[in-house]
Design a protein around this nucleic acid. Structure first.
Length: 645
RNA sequence: GCCACUUUAGCUCAGCUGGUAGAGCAACUGAUUUGUAAUCAGUAGGUCGUUGGUUCGAUUCCGACAAGUGGCUCCA
């Protein structure tokens, strides 16, 4: 007999070769019906796979992330079956589960697939699911596997097999479809009750743009139609807080074909948000010992040869303009200009850390397919600064920058983010990264140590560093699930040498400073795009372009509204009056939709008592109060950058 | 840059299989003077993304280009 232990600590005995499905049935038929997979000693297994030794078993239902993953992976196989039926001879690459569903990469052999095809495939998948075919696992020798796919003429699976060890290879078959697959899978196709194939995309084989492009079909599936409907509903809701939609509705920014792709024009409302953010940054940076600087938008080729931008970053720069036989480039980063400011006067250790900040506008020639609303643009306003410091000062400075992030995140209530330690990739030294292996190692260790010392949870990612050094990126997600770097804190061991930056040490030696590049608020474009989604357009009072709108009940009270407005303006509040001859219901509705935080309704009663009726956006009427009381509250909200109501 | 799709009034969208366009909201004018999420009436507004082609005739069919969207690759 084998001993099976359960999460609650219970232990039961079964005959060797008993599957977790049989174990579940021995406990409760009802439980068994809900199961999709199980973990055996922490590994996700097929429910029907025999267990031969003592093991810890945990049953997985739809609510478990691992079960969803297994379910979607099995749906990918089901989709492949339907595709192979419809388009015989197609070849499959890989079909993994993803965060919200699954995809399969397919070589359609020059054929095209349309939206109608997806609908037909959904129908076909539903029929195949109804057959309730079991997913059958089979261990197979490498030689037999190679023979099978050679016979089939499938070079993709043969490529996969190259990297697999004999004795460790399994096939899964459901209905008429067999795939090379590590598993695990759900017991049978019948559990898949609702499928939506969401989109068709091109995807490079093995993720390399030099390789052939395969057709990727994305989909998602659920154990009931109801859950699919709920999911689609959720997507609809997410669309409503998409910054591109809100940006238009709230008159934040605009773009125009005549101006060019990825070039944002900030409208008056958006500009107010920018100015509030800059005010916050300037206060914060002044308190942290930064100096402000201002530098031009262009510079000569020679500077970008020195900085390393042309060798390592030229693809992302706008092409040069030629004047008087010189090439000038639009700046893609502020750092070289800042290095020149550092170098303009001799520095001693007494001048360090030397911190200079600028809201510089930089231009990056992003590939056309990358552009995305405010999140990915070609003209960026960076909350940029460079800190020049000694090796001894580095940890404290780097740490202070991280603390600045967290201070900002607290103000904005940003809590869903991931700190990412972005490292270089050794095989790209001299191509994407400056060729200084020892310095890479040293600085990466330094940055990692800061994160460990401050107990900051983080993930490490290869091949994400800047060309001049490692960095910590703060990763966030847009409402449609796309990942972006919001803020960044970067080490630079390279440009200090390139620019021959020096300071005099206490021992009267010349030393090259380390440089920290940091942008805790990232860029205006991405940060505001993120904030719009984060707040679903309902900006806190201190950021709202219009903070208060006064709504007179009728024309008769416009005069009183003007008096109230004058008082609010004198208190520094951004206030307007809706003086149209419309009914109050309409004025409220439109002001609600514009997400103005406060509406002040004024009529007969209010005028007589010197009061206003306050209505908070999204919350409704919160009662009448004297104008002065309201001013006290809203002034405090603005000054503290924190909504109280 | 690559794959797929989309582009009609300021916005959101109709417009079947080719016969040069329509709604709601917004705007403007007038009436209404209104008590917490849409008052009524009228007026104006479009070389149907741009550009070639097919056709007697193209918003509609085909091609190219541009921009946008979903991915891939790339990045704040």
């Amino acid at each position: 007999m084998i001993k099976i232990s359960f999460p609650d600590g219970a232990v039961r005995e079964y005959a060797p070769g008993t599957s977790s499905m049989e174990i579940a049935k021995s406990i409760s038929e009802g439980l068994a019906r809900k199961l999709l997979a199980a973990t055996v000693n922490g590994q996700v297994w097929d429910l029907n796979r025999p267990i031969t030794t003592d093991a810890a078993v945990k049953f997985l239902t739809w609510d478990d992330k691992d079960a969803k993953t297994t379910f979607w992976h099995s749906t990918a196989h089901l989709m492949a079956e339907a595709i192979e039926k419809k388009f015989p001879g197609v070849k499959f690459w890989v079909g993994p589960p993803v965060d919200n569903g699954f995809y399969y990469d397919i070589d359609l052999g020059g054929r095209h697939i349309s939206e109608e095809d997806l609908r037909e495939l959904e129908v076909s998948m539903a029929a195949l699911a109804k057959e309730n075919n079991p997913y059958i696992r089979k261990e197979i020798s490498k030689a037999d596997a190679i023979a099978y796919f050679t016979e089939k003429g499938d070079e993709y699976k043969l490529d996969l097999l190259q990297n697999l060890e004999d004795g460790n290879i399994t096939f899964y078959t459901q209905g008429g479809f067999t795939d090379l697959c590590r598993g695990p899978h759900i017991p049978s196709t019948g559990a898949i009750k609702a499928v939506k194939l969401t989109n068709i995309a091109g995807a490079y084989w093995k993720g390399d743009e030099k390789n052939k492009q395969l057709t990727r079909i994305y989909g998602v599936s659920f154990p009931s139609q109801k859950e699919l409907d709920e999911y689609l509903q959720l997507l609809e809701e997410a669309k409503k807080r998409d910054h591109r939609k809100l940006g238009k509705e709230l008159s934040i920014y605009t773009m125009d074909d005549d101006v060019g792709p990825g070039l944002i024009m900030w409208m008056p409302n958006g500009t107010i948000i920018i100015e509030e953010l800059e005010k916050l940054a300037k206060e914060t940076e002044e308190a942290a010992g930064y100096h402000r600087v201002v530098t031009p938008h262009i510079a000569k080729e020679s500077m970008y040869l020195t900085s390393g931008h042309l060798p390592y970053y030229a693809d992302s720069m706008y092409p040069p303009m030629e004047l008087d036989g010189e090439k000038y480039y639009l700046k893609s980063m502020n750092c070289p200009h800042h290095h020149k400011i550092f170098a303009a006067e001799p520095k001693s250790y007494r001048d360090l850390p030397y911190r200079i900040a600028e809201y510089g506008t930089v231009y990056r020639y992003e590939q056309s397919g990358e552009l995305f609303g405010l999140m990915r643009v070609r003209c960026l306003h960076m909350n940029d600064a460079h800190i020049y410091c000694s090796k001894e000062q580095f940890a404290a400075e780097f740490r202070a920058v991280n603390e600045m992030y967290l201070k900002y995140f607290k103000i904005f209530g940003i809590d869903k983010y991931q700190m990412r330690l972005s490292l270089h990739s050794a095989d790209k030294l001299g191509k994407k990264y400056v060729d200084q292996p020892a310095l890479w190692k040293e600085t990466e260790d330094m940055v990692r140590q800061v994160l460990i010392d401050t107990n900051t949870p983080f993930v490490e990612v290869q091949d994400e560093a800047a060309f001049y050094g490692p960095k910590i990126d703060v990763q966030i997600f847009s409402v449609i699930g796309r990942e972006f770097t919001l803020a960044t804190n970067q080490v630079d061991f390279s440009q200090g040498r390139s620019f021959k930056l020096q300071y005099t040490t206490p021992e009267n030696h010349s030393e090259t400073p380390l440089i920290i590049h940091r942008a805790p608020l990232g860029t205006h474009e991405r940060f505001i795009g993120f904030l719009l989604e984060h707040y679903a357009g309902k900006l806190p009072v201190w950021l709202a372009p219009q903070q208060v709108r006064i709504l007179p009940i009728s024309d008769k009270f416009v005069g009183y509204a003007e008096e109230v407005k004058a008082k609010l303006r004198a208190a520094g509040v951004r206030v307007g009056i809706d003086d149209r001859s419309e009914k109050i219901g309409k004025k409220i509705r439109e002001t609600e939709l514009l997400k103005v935080p406060y509406m002040l309704v004024v009529g007969e009663k209010e005028m007589a008592e010197g009061k206003i009726s306050v209505r908070r956006q999204g919350k409704g009427d919160i009662g009448a109060q004297p104008v002065e009381d309201f001013i006290t509250v809203i002034k405090r909200e603005i000054a503290n950058r924190h909504d109280e109501v």
